[in-house]
């Protein structure tokens, strides 16, 4: 399928490769994966390993920012990715190691994440605190739990229809979850805040 995102990506490639025959840019060796599932898997693998350390070092385990220098990049476009590779000094050295297919696959993964509303649950200063993006009933969302303490912390997620989770010290857990209501409250969690666009 050649959905709107693919179309935008293809157009962006053409712009990025200005001066090169558009058809060749889309259909040559540098073309994106034809199999979306394979592209997504390849993008995730690259996200976790590119450069030997992975994008997660600067952007968090699931591109949610995690307080790191790169911030939240869920839903980033190919144009934004290309610009960063060209203009952000710490990313410029990484650019030559990523083919156009690699870049498209990473963007595929970021788009997949961008379509998942994010619920961030962080244990810090003795209690859990939550931030959430807008949830849609029945639409997959992603829970990200981070334990910013030196002891294992548990959180009862029965209200969400999930089992209690134990998070190891300084560990991050991410799980997919399908909300049954657009809002929720969890025992022992501070009032839930709306999440800013960028978590830095």
């Amino acid at each position: 399928m050649f959905g709107p995102k693919r179309f935008v990506q293809a157009c962006t490639i053409v712009l990025a490769l200005a001066g090169i025959e558009p058809v060749l840019a889309a259909a040559g060796d540098e073309s994106p994966e034809d199999d979306p599932a394979a592209a997504l898997a390849a993008g995730q693998e690259l996200y976790l390993s590119a450069g030997g350390y992975g994008c997660l070092v600067c952007h968090g385990q699931v591109a949610h920012g995690a307080g790191q220098v790169g911030g939240m990049i869920r839903g980033a476009t190919l144009a934004q990715f290309q610009t960063s590779l060209e203009q952000v000094p710490v990313m410029a050295l990484l650019a030559p190691s990523l083919s156009m297919t690699d870049r498209l696959n990473i963007v595929e993964y970021l788009n997949y994440l961008g379509d998942l509303p994010l619920v961030s649950l962080t244990y810090r200063d003795g209690h859990w605190q939550a931030q959430t993006q807008v949830l849609q009933v029945g639409q997959w969302a992603q829970l990200v739990l981070y334990n910013d303490s030196f002891e294992t912390q548990s959180l009862d997620l029965a209200e969400l229809g999930l089992a209690t989770l134990a998070v190891l010290p300084l560990a991050t857990l991410d799980i997919l979850w399908r909300p049954t209501s657009a809002s929720f409250a969890l025992a022992g969690v501070a009032p839930i805040q709306a999440m800013p666009l960028d978590l830095r």
Partner: peptide, 17 residues
């Protein structure tokens, strides 16, 4: 300087920082 050390750093060639 009294504690100047010999350090081995393992890194990626793509990492500027």
């Amino acid at each position: 300087f009294a504690f100047a050390e010999a350090i081995t750093v393992y890194k990626s060639p793509t990492c500027g920082c």
